[in-house]
Amino acid sequence: MVKLLASFNMAKRMYSGVTGKVKAQKYVLTKYFQGEPKKTDFKIVEEELPELKDGEVLTEAEYLSVDPYMRAYMIAYKLPTDMIGGQVAKIIASRNKNYAVGKYLTGSFGWRTHTILNPDTANQAGLLPVTLLPDFGSHPVSLALGILGMPGNTAYFGLKEICQPKPGETIVITGAAGAVGSHVGQIGKILGCRVVGFAGTDEKCEYLEKELGFDRAFNYKTGDIRAALKEGCPQRVDCYFDNVGGEISSTIINYMNKYGRIGICGSISSYNESKLPKASILQPSMVLKELKMEGFVVNRWTDRWNEGIEANLKWLGEGKLKYKEKIYHGFDNMVDSLVGLLRGENTGKAVVKVK
């Protein structure tokens, strides 16, 4: 009788008391983006979720991510299609003994309020693998979408594996005040490098220098890029972490040292353009300086995902990493938050608090 009662109580705790079927809301893309994303490109659809099967959990989204790649990637999907994206979600019901109610998962669940999945067999094809959050201590769980998640791992693996900086070298970063760029610069300083960033406002540049420890930061909208490079990089550039593409990238690459390394993370300067803008030719510098350029997507390192999270969590605990979050509010504001991100409203990571 005691064993039976204990088994009943465990099952009750696992299922969390959620009764009946749950209705989820999700964003469905119905038109390809022309210029900036618009609310009329989407429909918000309500769907009734089935009962949980053995091994499955039901999650409720707490924070949704908005990232530049979302603007670029949707052209590859056949319409209508569910909107992609990562989220931090709380487990509110469970029929999987390894995933208790009240714990948090991250994954590429898309722009939706509730999700049913089996974490043990879930599709890992998204940029954000399904992960049970470790203990973040006093830090907010939203960081699993920022420095302790996909952007943090993008910075960690992209810089260390692609650019491979050595102490004393000079790293230049475009999009330097964003979630990835601001993190790359701080890791560069931890590794003993000179770090120079380009951002879109004087306020962002001041933040990079005074708060994050960049050696120099320049406003690419108001300054002369070549003059900024001469001032900020007296020994020229050894590593370039490229988040934006365009003419500024050509200028930086032409200012690099022999055997320089270039990591191509994104091209946000062109995401809202219907025709790709032209930029100055790179081949002369690539050949004469024997530069190495490599594009990457962070899920290349899915099998080492926790390595990046643990390294960043350690640096955060030691006070070597700082962060900012731009928090939007409300599931209805997903499109506005993506537009704001693409306009450069954010310093650090942009997330949406669902409630």
Rank of each mutant, 00 (worst) to 15 (best):
I92N: 03
A155Y: 10
V130C: 11
I173D: 00
Q186K: 08
V88Q: 01
K189Y: 10
L105K: 05
G185N: 06
F136H: 07
G152S: 05
N153L: 05
L117H: 14
E169F: 02
H139S: 06
K189L: 03
R112Y: 00
G110W: 11
A199F: 11
T113W: 01
K210W: 07
D215R: 00
N153V: 03
K160S: 02
S108G: 12
F136V: 01
G85I: 11
G178A: 15
D120H: 05
A177I: 15
P165C: 10
R194F: 04
Y156I: 02
N123C: 12
E169S: 05
S138F: 03
K160D: 01
G137P: 04
T81R: 10
A93R: 00
N96I: 04
V195N: 10
I92K: 00
K210M: 06
L127F: 15
K160H: 03
G181R: 15
V172W: 15
L143G: 05
I171M: 02
Y156T: 04
G102L: 07
N123Q: 08
T81I: 10
G181Y: 13
D82R: 07
L117I: 10
G181Q: 12
K210R: 14
G168C: 14
T131L: 03
I92G: 02
P165L: 09
K189T: 12
M83W: 08
T121E: 10
N96D: 11
N123W: 05
C163S: 14
P129H: 10
K90F: 02
W111F: 15
G102W: 04
I162H: 00
Y156C: 05
A155T: 13
D82L: 08
P134R: 12
T154V: 12
A89N: 07
G102A: 06
L212G: 01
Y207H: 07
A122V: 10
L132G: 00
H114G: 09
L79H: 08
N153A: 07
A89K: 07
I116K: 05
T201C: 03
A93Y: 00
M83K: 05
Q186I: 11
G200Y: 00
F157T: 02
P140C: 01
V130K: 03
C205E: 04
